[in-house]
Nucleic acid binder design. Structure first.
Lengths: 143, 143
DNA sequence: ACTATGCCTACTACTATAATAGGAATAGTA
DNA sequence: TACTATTCCTATTATAGTAGTAGGCATAGT
């Protein structure tokens, strides 16, 4: 169980946008450079993020991307779900009809619990939460 | 983020062994039939489970597999880790040296939290716990 | 007009997954 | 001893997804 590179890049890109929130659009080129990501690949990822309404774009020179909502209104699950989908473990966890064995399947209960744990983290944390936490850590270092 | 079929089959097979614990070896053929899994594919999965020491085998007629330890001594993470590995999200979560950006990476904190949540479930639950919980549910139905 | 950006589409190398297949080795049993 | 049921070992394969690379069009600012 490992995250796709797309999801990891997406999360890093969105966190950059969150950090930049209020300062106008941020360019793919800049994000890619900051994060050591292929610009062309990131372009595709940004397009997907945009198509879900998570971010907005401004075309042309001095264009770029901004978050569609303030960082405290965006949950990590919003970003996560773009590529990893709402299902974290197995389809039958979300859709009992997916498998006829589901009602009696004790393995399903296991994956339900795991899924619940993951979604609990992702849904209860906003981009702003992450940024704030990072700042606290930073200042701890400086003491 | 979805589980591999191997991991799901492995979990179901091991739970069958847990249910059968104390009744001698259980055959791949039986498990495969009970669980609607390709016998040949399950054979490979059982071999992998055995190589980690999680289960033991008896060869020849009337052979089969048994858990190497009683169900209350086996954690779900023991089964999970055979195919999904101990890393649930990203390598850098377990190994900071994996990426030079790790110390400052705020995305890494996100994936750390998710990983912690998953491992918490898998490490705090045993096969016996799952079986017991399933029984409770069953008896609820009968009321 | 020029340039910097997003937007769109196609292509590709690589890898993992989920099997299928065949047969050798072993152990119980008639 | 022969027979049979099982694990064990190895090879092969079809398919899909991933992680890019690439080229050029559309748009907006200067």
């Amino acid at each position: 169980m490992k995250l796709s590179t797309r999801t990891r890049y997406a999360m890093r890109a969105v966190l950059e946008l969150a950090n930049n929130y209020g300062n106008g659009p941020l360019q793919t080129r800049i994000i890619a450079r900051n994060q050591d990501i292929s610009t062309k690949y990131l372009e595709q990822i940004m397009a997907a993020l945009k198509s879900t309404g998570l971010i907005r774009s401004q075309r042309g020179a001095k264009g770029g991307y901004i978050l569609a909502n303030p960082p405290e209104k965006i949950k990590l699950s919003d970003v996560f779900d773009v590529f990893e989908g709402p299902v974290v473990t197995v389809e039958c966890v979300a859709d009992e009809k997916y498998c006829k064995r589901a009602p009696d399947c004790i393995a399903r209960q296991v994956w339900s619990e795991v899924q619940r744990a993951v979604r609990n983290v992702l849904q209860s944390t906003t981009l702003q939460d992450v940024i704030d936490k990072a700042k606290v850590t930073k200042s701890d270092y400086q003491i």
